[in-house]
Amino acid sequence: MIERSFINKFLISSVIIILLFTFIGCSDSSTVNSQNKPNQKTTQSSVSKSVAGTSQIKDSGNSVTTSPIKLQKAKVTHHTDGDTIGVMLENGQYEKVRFIGVNTPESTTKHEQYGEQASNYTKSQLYGKTIYLESDAGTTDKYGRLLRYIWISPPTAINESEIRSKMFNAILASNGYAEQMTIQPNIKYADYFRKFCGEARENKRGLWGVNPNGTTKGDGISSPSSSSSSNYQSTSPSNSESYTPRSDSSSGSSNNSVSENGGILSSSGNGKIKGNINSKGEKVYHLYGDLYYNRTKAEEYFDTEAQAQAAGYRPIKK
């Protein structure tokens, strides 16, 4: 009787042990399957990551636009003139941005025909808006401004239709607010800008209606022949050089005339600070009363030394 009771207890204990092992095995299998299953949330969130050469951009409604080019999102917080703005990047950093490939008439330190119209147009179209910046081979100019193409919305393809309707540089050219200004190495869209400016000129739109030869004289950015650097940095002058100004051959008098576009054409510039590019190609400025002031040809005029220095000029060595 005792032996039968012992056998029954042994059998019951064996069954319990088998059931326990079976339960533990199923639990482990479930855990392994759970660990191997892809995390759906992680997979979905990866859609906003950038791929080299492309951008996947979320708008305020979380819809995603895939662009074939790499773009940097920014908000326009400041306005300078027709081809220069200030932006706040997504990381909170403020940058000045100079548009690549086009040049609008001046409206700040000097006033060129159609300059105010171009400046007001850019402000009305971009100020306070979200834009998308595309860089080319060169990243900044000698003033430290970012050199960028400005997209008002991400392009879905790179073709004439998208460029004409979504790139603000091209819109300025097409509507006659800017002339083409191609500077190596930033030439990605140069052929488009040439075509759009040609159309505007042929149809006398904007500045081309004011003057068939255009109205701009450039804004001091280096020409292709003067620099092959992507940063367009100017060369620092030697402290020991002698100064030789480029003279105005027409007169040595203080009554030289000066045009709105710079140069000796109208007496309205008398007494102002003269910005001059000397025989060595250096940008210097003269205060009224300086030794060479009266016989120096002015490339630009300034009201203050701060304006001259901001435009890249240095004082003459006395």
Results as ranks from 00 to 15, higher is better:
I2L: 03
F6E: 02
K9F: 11
F10E: 14
S13M: 03
I17S: 14
I18G: 11
L20T: 05
L20N: 09
S27E: 15
T31W: 07
V32R: 15
N33K: 14
Q35N: 14
N36I: 11
N39H: 06
Q40P: 02
K41M: 07
T42V: 14
T43Y: 06
K49H: 03
S63E: 06
P68G: 06
P68Y: 01
K73C: 02
K73G: 02
A74R: 04
V76W: 13
T77H: 04
T80D: 10
T84N: 13
T84H: 09
I85V: 12
V87A: 08
V87S: 08
L89V: 09
G92E: 11
G92Q: 11
G92H: 08
Q93E: 14
K96C: 04
R98S: 06
T108Y: 06
T108Q: 12
T108M: 07
K110A: 00
K110W: 15
H111M: 02
E112I: 00
G115A: 07
E116S: 11
Q117F: 06
A118H: 02
S119A: 13
Y121P: 01
S124P: 00
Q125M: 11
Y127W: 06
G128Q: 04
G128H: 03
G128E: 02
K129T: 02
T130H: 07
I131W: 13
E134K: 13
S135D: 01
A137S: 10
G138R: 11
T140C: 05
Y143N: 12
R145C: 12
R148A: 03
W151Q: 06
P154S: 02
P154M: 05
P154V: 13
T156V: 00
A157M: 00
I158L: 11
M167R: 01
M167C: 10
F168P: 07
F168V: 00
A173N: 08
A178H: 00
E179I: 03
E179W: 01
M181G: 01
Q184V: 09
I187H: 05
I187D: 12
K188V: 03
A190W: 09
K195D: 13
E199K: 03
A200T: 10
G206H: 03
L207E: 10
G209D: 14
G209Q: 04
N211W: 00
N213S: 15
N213C: 01
K217M: 04
P224D: 06
S227C: 13
S228W: 07
S228C: 04
S228R: 13
S230A: 07
Y232F: 14
Q233V: 10
Q233L: 15
T235R: 14
S236T: 13
P245E: 08
S247P: 05
S247L: 09
S250R: 15
S250W: 09
G252A: 13
G252S: 15
S253E: 07
S254M: 01
S254G: 05
S259H: 01
S259A: 08
E260Y: 09
G263V: 03
I264D: 08
I264T: 08
S266W: 02
G271M: 02
I273M: 05
I273Y: 10
I273G: 09
I273S: 14
K274M: 09
G275K: 00
K280G: 13
K280A: 08
G281F: 08
E282T: 10
Y285Q: 14
D290I: 01
L291A: 14
Y292H: 15
Y293A: 11
N294H: 13
T296P: 05
A298S: 12
E300K: 07
E300S: 02
Y301C: 01
F302W: 03
D303M: 05
A308H: 05
A311Y: 02
K317Y: 12
